[in-house]
């Protein structure tokens, strides 16, 4: 049977289609500066979505990531500001701050994971709860306003988002590395295999001597760490965090995972598909901004159509089997 498997190739074809569309509508689209912008912007959601792929593949869900990112950005900025008098305005402070973001992410992910696996509460409920908690905490820490990074630190830290190897800025590099490692881990390691097995049928996995609870917990911790990594890249961009940071990131990340062909019910994870999904979502935004194709009121509608289409394609594959 030589029919093209839309399920696997559909997202990639859609991505290429968007590229061609963008290039036709506005030559500025293909300028390295624009592509660099789009890729770097995608990096936050992209890193989170890679972690989310593992969580969804094992049959879980995490709604708290957007709030978690805001919260981590908040405590990172506060930690860095507090360290300035002690360590000074230098890379030392920044590296310590990065450690706060990463450890904070691991801890937040552990809290989610432990509540889900050890206290055995539904993932949806747990992360709906922590979503509200993280969001409130950052608003409270910021006193309802905005937490801003010390301006001296800011200028040292800034290149982490804006710098890099020419047009290939650090966020793009980190995103690419995470994608490659993520795909490899899903496809070629015991961990990835166990994640897929649990999502496919957790009872079979348990009977097959897989430590189901530990693997599940690990996916949430991994996701938390990736949210921390995303925060490390996010903070130098605007040097601030507030109650409105990272709003709806969780849904964008989940949407990217689904567009990429990972089944929402778990059991089959595609990290590279997730990467394609993230790029599709950012490219739509970018193209709509670069052209006057449709009313900006309709941006959300176009993304919605793409998400539903992606799921329809998955369905077609299943009935064809």
């Amino acid at each position: 049977m030589k029919r093209i498997d839309l399920h696997v190739w559909g997202p990639l074809i859609a991505l290429i289609g968007l590229f061609i569309l963008g290039a036709i509508l506005n030559p500025a689209f293909l300028a390295p500066a624009n592509l660099s912008n789009v890729l770097a912007r995608s990096a936050f959601i992209g890193l989170i979505a890679i972690g989310m792929t593992f969580v969804i593949t094992q049959g879980g869900l995490d709604l708290s990531v957007g709030s978690m990112a805001a919260f981590l950005a908040g405590i990172t900025i506060m930690a860095m500001n507090a360290l300035v008098p002690v360590v000074g305005e230098n890379w030392g402070t920044i590296i310590l701050g990065m450690g706060v973001a990463l450890l904070g992410g691991v801890a937040a992910g552990y809290v989610n994971g432990a509540l889900i696996t050890k206290a055995r509460i539904e993932a949806f409920i747990v992360t709906l709860g922590t979503m509200g908690i993280f969001r409130s905490l950052v608003t409270w820490l910021a006193d309802g306003g905005t937490l801003s990074l010390d301006s001296g630190l800011r200028s040292i830290y800034r290149p982490v988002y804006f710098g890099g190897l020419g047009w290939i800025t650090w966020p793009i590099i980190v995103f690419a590395v995470a994608a490659v490692v993520g795909e490899w881990a899903m496809r070629h390691t015991r961990f990835g295999r166990h994640v897929e097995a649990i999502g496919s049928n957790d009872r079979v996995a348990r009977y097959s001597a897989v430590d189901v609870e530990r693997v599940r917990l690990t996916t949430y911790v991994l996701l938390g760490a990736l949210v921390g990594l995303a925060t490390i890249l996010y903070v130098p961009r605007l040097g601030s965090a507030s109650g409105s940071t990272g709003v709806l990131w969780e849904l964008e990340a989940i949407a990217a995972v689904i567009i990429g062909g990972t089944a929402l019910k778990g059991g089959r994870g595609r990290v590279w598909g997730t990467v394609v999904g993230v790029l599709i979502l950012s490219l739509i935004d970018n193209i709509l901004n670069l052209t006057d194709l449709v009313s900006p009121y309709l941006n959300g509608a176009i993304q919605g159509v793409i998400i539903v289409l992606a799921v329809v394609l998955q369905r077609e594959k299943r009935t064809a089997e």
Binding site: E196, A197, S200, N201, R203, V204, A205, R206, Y207, G267, R268
Partner: peptide, 9 residues
């Protein structure tokens, strides 16, 4: 079917 094999793998 439910505890022995991953039917979709």
């Amino acid at each position: 079917k439910e505890a022995g094999l991953l039917l979709d793998k």
